[in-house]
Amino acid sequence: MKLLLTNDDGIHAKGIYALCKELEQYHDITMVAPNDQRSATSHSITIAESLIVKEERLQGLKSKAYSVSGTPADCVRIGLNQLVDQKVDMVISGTNIGYNMGTDILYSGTVSAAVEATLCGIPAIAISTDQDAELEVYDIAAKYVAEIIEKAMGNKIEDDIVLNVNVPAIEQKDIKGMKVCKIGKMQYKPFFKETESSDMSRRYNLEGERIVDHIDESDSYYVNKGYVTITPLHYDLTNFQILKNVSTWF
C-alpha cells in the first residue's frame, strides 16, 4: 500500500523515524512532516505565508522524506496535492511524543493531521505514547501500527474515519492487548507566569497541570491498565443527543 507519514514533532523526531523504519518493510512510504516542533497546533493551516518544502535524507531510511515549514495539516495537504504522485491508501500520523487521549485531541496536531486526511477522502491513523517513553517504546508502537493498518484495510475502513491509537509506555511483554474504546477526559489546568520584560509590555509563559479523569472504559482508563487503545474519530462534531432538543429553542 501507499502510505503518507506525518507528525507534529518534526521530521527528525524519534517517533516518526521508528514508524517509517517498520512500515517501509511492507509498504511504499512517503514522509512529509514539519521542519520543526509543531505540537498543539490543532488543525491550523498556513494562509498568509509560502510553504517551504525541502527534500531530506534520513540516515537508515530508504523512503522519500520532505520537511515543510508549516503545520501538520499543511503537511498532509501539500503532501497529497504536490509531493505524492500516486493514490495514497492511508495517512499515518505520529508516533507522537505524549499521549493524545480524551479532550486533549482537540489541541493535537497529530490527530488533526489525521483528520485532514479524512477531509481529503483518505482513512488515517493517529498514534501516540507517553512523553517520557524510552526509545524502544516507539519501536513497539510501530509494530502495533503495522498490525492495525492490516486489520483496518482488511475490514475496509471508511475513508472518513480516524483511528486514534495510544500505546502505553511499558515493555511489550506487559501490554495486555488492544481495546477499542471511547475518549475520556484529559485537560490542563493552565496558569500564566509573568516574567520580566525589557519594554512596557507584559510577558507571560503558559504553565499548567495535567488533569486526567480515568472514566471507566475510556482511553486513559485502559492505557493506565496496560492496553493499547483504539478510538474511532470523525470530523462531524454534531451532538446528535441534543440536536432535536436545541431545535425546539428556535
Rank of each mutant, 00 (worst) to 15 (best):
K176N: 10
I122F: 13
K176V: 00
V32A: 08
A117C: 10
D74Y: 13
T30P: 03
D174Y: 11
H214Q: 03
N245S: 13
E56F: 09
D139I: 00
D236M: 06
H27V: 01
T30G: 08
N81S: 15
H214E: 08
A141T: 04
I175F: 09
N7P: 06
E55N: 06
L19E: 01
I45W: 13
T30V: 15
L19C: 02
I230C: 09
I161E: 04
L233D: 09
I78T: 07
S42H: 13
T46E: 03
Y138K: 01
F250K: 12
Q172D: 11
A152N: 05
I175V: 10
Q59R: 13
K156T: 03
A48T: 11
I105R: 14
F250E: 08
T30A: 08
T238A: 10
V180A: 06
Y227F: 15
G154R: 05
S67W: 04
L80F: 12
A126M: 02
T71I: 08
K87V: 03
I170M: 10
V76E: 07
D9S: 12
A142W: 04
H27P: 01
Q187I: 14
A142D: 01
E207F: 09
L106Y: 15
K87W: 02
K21G: 00
E217F: 14
Y138S: 01
G79Y: 13
I125D: 00
D139F: 00
R210I: 09
G109M: 09
N100F: 02
L233G: 04
M1W: 07
Q172I: 13
N164Q: 11
K189S: 11
D28I: 09
L58W: 09
G79F: 11
I242V: 15
T229D: 06
G121C: 12
